[in-house]
């Protein structure tokens, strides 16, 4: 029964969003405002995860919604809005990153991570406190190159499926998988080293 209600709510939610989308496409600003309200936190979160700075994240979020509004007339309602807005926000974030170029990126020389190869099995993360772990992961994510970081954020933080990530970024699912694997390996390796360093 509960599952039925959840599914029913999801259907209505989708229908309602489709209606709002249609209105927004036709230029209804109020409808667009509702879309903003619905997605603002997710967009900000992605922006923040990608850029690592609150100020930049707010700028990126606002700019993303402006761009989306600009292009709303050409939005294809057959696609899901959130994959579209994700695409915008990631592009804006990438552009911002290019302009600012503040973050040093570490090219990951992965010995692991590619298909068929082994992975590290360090269990040190399990012994760390969650908040400490989160901090270390956050730092490690910032060292990822933009393509790896983007995929990592969309999967790990936003929990998008591989297909949704591929749609959002305009890349193949296989590319998503390989980037995600590299990103995870790099993050895990860095975190493990940090924890080992702290423990030694």
């Amino acid at each position: 029964m509960m599952l039925f209600l959840v599914l029913l709510a999801a259907v209505f939610d989708d229908e309602e969003e489709a209606l709002i989308l249609r209105k927004a496409i036709e230029g209804d600003r109020e409808a667009y405002g509702r879309l903003v309200s619905k997605y603002q936190k997710r967009v900000f979160r992605v922006a923040r995860r990608l850029c690592g700075s609150d100020d930049d994240a707010w700028d990126i979020t606002q700019e993303s919604f402006i761009r989306a509004m600009n292009a709303m007339g050409s939005f294809d309602p057959d696609f899901r809005f959130f994959t579209w807005i994700y695409r915008i926000v990631t592009n804006v974030a990438i552009n911002t990153h290019r302009k600012t170029g503040r973050r040093a990126e570490v090219e990951y020389q992965d010995e692991h991570g590619y298909q068929g190869q082994t992975v590290t099995l360090d269990q040190a993360p399990l012994n760390a406190a969650a908040d400490e772990l989160a901090l270390l992961v956050g730092r490690a994510v910032e060292t990822l190159s933009v393509p790896l970081r983007t995929v990592f954020v969309l999967r790990v933080d936003q929990e998008l499926s591989y297909t949704e990530i591929a749609q959002s970024l305009g890349i193949a699912v296989g590319t998503v998988m390989s980037r995600l694997n590299r990103a995870r390996n790099q993050v895990r390796t860095i975190v493990s080293r940090e924890l080992e360093g702290a423990g030694s």
């Binding site: 936190k41 900000f44 979160r45 609150d54 992975v119 099995l121 360090d122 269990q123 993360p125 399990l126 969650a130 908040d131 772990l133 989160a134 901090l135 992961v137 956050g138 994510v141 790990v156 933080d157 929990e159 995870r184 993050v187 895990r188 975190v191």
Partner: peptide, 23 residues
């Protein structure tokens, strides 16, 4: 090995994901 790997990876990612706080 594999179960440990998944457990470790899951803990690591969960910690980061759950650390988020909305403004």
């Amino acid at each position: 090995d594999c179960s440990s790997f998944l457990e470790t990876q899951g803990a690591l990612e969960r910690s980061w994901r759950d650390s988020w706080q909305d403004p």
